[in-house]
C-alpha cells in the first residue's frame, strides 16, 4: 500500500468509524441519518482506495441517494414521535453489553490479523488491460461469470416488490363489493342464530 493510499485509508476509515458511532449514539433520529450519510460517503472513499470505482459510485447512488433519503423521509413523516427516549437500562447492564460487544469485536479482529484474502485471477479485457473495479469489469463479472445467480436475485427482488404492492394496495371496487356482501351475509346469519337462540331460551323459560 502506497503512502497516499495509506493516508486516504486512515482518513476515510476514521470518518467511517466516527459516522458509525454517531449513527448509533445519536438520540435525534435525523442526526443519526446525517451521521449515516457521513459513514456511507467514507465507505465509498474506502472503495476508491481499493480501485473499485464503480462500487464507490453505486454505494453513493444507492445508499446515500436512495436509502438515506428514504430514512430522512420516514423520519420527517413520523415527526417528533421518532425521537428515542433516554436509555432506561441500569449501569451494570450497559457495562455488560459493552464488555460483550467489545469481546466479539476483539475476537473477530484477532482472527483476521495475519489472514490475507485469497488472490483472485485478474480480470482482463481483450486489450489485456486490468479492468478490475471498472464498469466493464463489473459487467463481465455480473453478466458473464455470475449470470444465473444475478438473475435469480433479481427475480427474488421482483417477487418481493410484487408482494409488497399486493399487501399495501387498497381494494378495488369489485373486491370491496364482495367484502361488503360477505359481511352482510355474516350479519344475517348472526341475526338468524340470535333469533333461534331467543326462541330456544323462550321455550326453556316457559
Amino acid at each position: 500500500m502506497s503512502t497516499s493510499n495509506f493516508v486516504l485509508f486512515l482518513v476515510s476509515g476514521g470518518l467511517a468509524i466516527v459516522g458509525a458511532i454517531g449513527t448509533v449514539a445519536s438520540r435525534k433520529p435525523l442526526r443519526a441519518a446525517v451521521a449515516l450519510l457521513l459513514h456511507i460517503i467514507a465507505l465509498a472513499a474506502l472503495y476508491l482506495t481499493l480501485h473499485a470505482e464503480l462500487l464507490a459510485a453505486l454505494q453513493l447512488l444507492v445508499y446515500a441517494g436512495a436509502i438515506v433519503v428514504l430514512f430522512v423521509f420516514v423520519i420527517m413523516l413520523i415527526g417528533p414521535a421518532a425521537e428515542v427516549p433516554s436509555n432506561p437500562r441500569g449501569k451494570i447492564t450497559r457495562l455488560l453489553s459493552l464488555v460483550v460487544g467489545g469481546s466479539v469485536m476483539a475476537t473477530v479482529s484477532f482472527a483476521l490479523v495475519g489472514h490475507t484474502a485469497p488472490r483472485l485471477p485478474m480480470l482482463r479485457n481483450e486489450a489485456g488491460e486490468n479492468i478490475f473495479g471498472t464498469v466493464e469489469g463489473m459487467g463481465v463479472a455480473i453478466y458473464q461469470q455470475a449470470l444465473v445467480p444475478f438473475e435469480l436475485v433479481s427475480a427474488a427482488l421482483l417477487v418481493a416488490i410484487i408482494g409488497a404492492i399486493a399487501i399495501a394496495r387498497s381494494r378495488t371496487p369489485q373486491e370491496q363489493a364482495v367484502v361488503v356482501e360477505r359481511q352482510a351475509e355474516r350479519i344475517e346469519l348472526a341475526a338468524a342464530r340470535d333469533a333461534e337462540l331467543a326462541q330456544a331460551t323462550a321455550k326453556v323459560g316457559s
Binding site: 470505482e53 459510485a57 446515500a64 441517494g65 433519503v69 423520519i75 473495479g133 471498472t134
Partner: peptide
C-alpha cells in the same frame, strides 16, 4: 478522469437531496 464518468455525477448529485430535506426538518 474517472472510469465511471457520468455515474459519478449522479452519485454525487443524489446526495444533494438530503440537504433540502434536512434543512426543512431542522
Amino acid at each position: 478522469n474517472l472510469n465511471v464518468g457520468i455515474l459519478f455525477i449522479f452519485a454525487v448529485a443524489g446526495t444533494g437531496v438530503i440537504g433540502a430535506a434536512v434543512g426543512g426538518y431542522a
